[in-house]
């Protein structure tokens, strides 16, 4: 009998203690964060670029991140988030990552054998990597390792390939690429891409890569005004006004290609 009383007493006492501690020392949670958290998918995939769903909710509440970064959230949920935060709902369309380089081993001249840490940034700090082109994909797969969705495949001939069906446009690969070869483009406009990233002169580029944009301007001339702009010696697609797919036939080096 005494045991029961003792146990019950202890239980009540401890419960009270916990209650008091929470009451006086507890960290009050922002109701905004709480309601944002409820809208989160809760998968903690990290696709938003933050540590997880609650981190993202916190970041949104404190203004560190914008709504709509989550690749999994539905459009309604995003709209609700915007409503809660009191910001204009961002209607920008979903994005997709593109590796703007065709320089696999068959095309880009391999200048040397790289020996060292299997990481693109590391390789770039050593003689600019083993490929002659100092703007192209290094082919060591830092982006593939950074992708939380497994959407990037490293082709055996050292070029990153993005699988459009898996890509959520989270931008992790974009951050991981030391050469900024990966670009984030609007998904609906991602029909044709210039698979080259080198602004060098054609003479320089041709020495190191067979598939480089040689700056011949054929595509820019054929396309409608403003659809393809020349960025130095590199053609670049205006994704707000993308050219028709047929434009790819004008490219002599086949670096202007349809989306894969």
């Amino acid at each position: 009998m005494i045991d029961i009383v003792m146990m019950t007493g202890t239980g009540i006492l401890l419960g009270l203690a916990i209650g008091l501690v929470v009451r006086y020392f507890g960290v009050p949670e922002d109701p905004l964060v709480e309601s944002l958290n409820e809208l989160m998918p809760g998968a903690n995939c990290g696709g938003c670029g933050l540590a997880g769903c609650s981190d993202y909710a916190n970041a949104m509440a404190t203004g560190r991140a914008k709504p709509g970064l989550c690749p999994v959230m539905s459009a309604e949920a995003v709209a609700k988030c915007c409503e809660l935060l009191g910001v204009e709902s961002d209607t920008s369309e979903p994005k997709i990552a593109v590796v703007c380089c065709s320089g696999d081993d068959n095309h880009a001249a391999k200048q040397a054998f790289y020996n060292g840490v299997n990481d693109c940034l590391n390789a770039m700090l050593v003689a600019g990597g083993a490929k002659g082109c100092t703007y192209g994909c290094l082919g060591l797969g830092s982006c593939a390792r950074a992708c939380p969705f497994g959407a990037i495949e490293m082709l055996p001939n050292h070029l990153a390939k993005i699988h459009a069906d898996l890509c959520t446009g989270c931008g992790k690969c974009y951050m991981a690429c030391p050469r900024n070869v990966i670009k984030l483009v609007p998904r609906s406009a991602a029909k044709v891409h210039v698979y080259c990233n080198s602004p060098e002169k054609a003479t320089v580029k041709k020495n190191v890569c067979k598939a480089a944009c040689i700056g011949c301007r054929k595509c820019a001339r054929t396309a409608e005004e403003g659809q393809i702009v020349m960025n130095g010696f590199l053609a670049s697609i205006n994704y707000d006004n993308p050219p028709a797919e047929e434009i790819v036939e004008t490219c002599p080096t086949k670096c202007l290609r349809k989306a894969e």
Partner: peptide, 10 residues
């Protein structure tokens, strides 16, 4: 012959 060189960090 510079085609078979190795590059690595110091």
């Amino acid at each position: 012959d510079t085609s078979k060189l190795v590059v690595s960090s110091s």
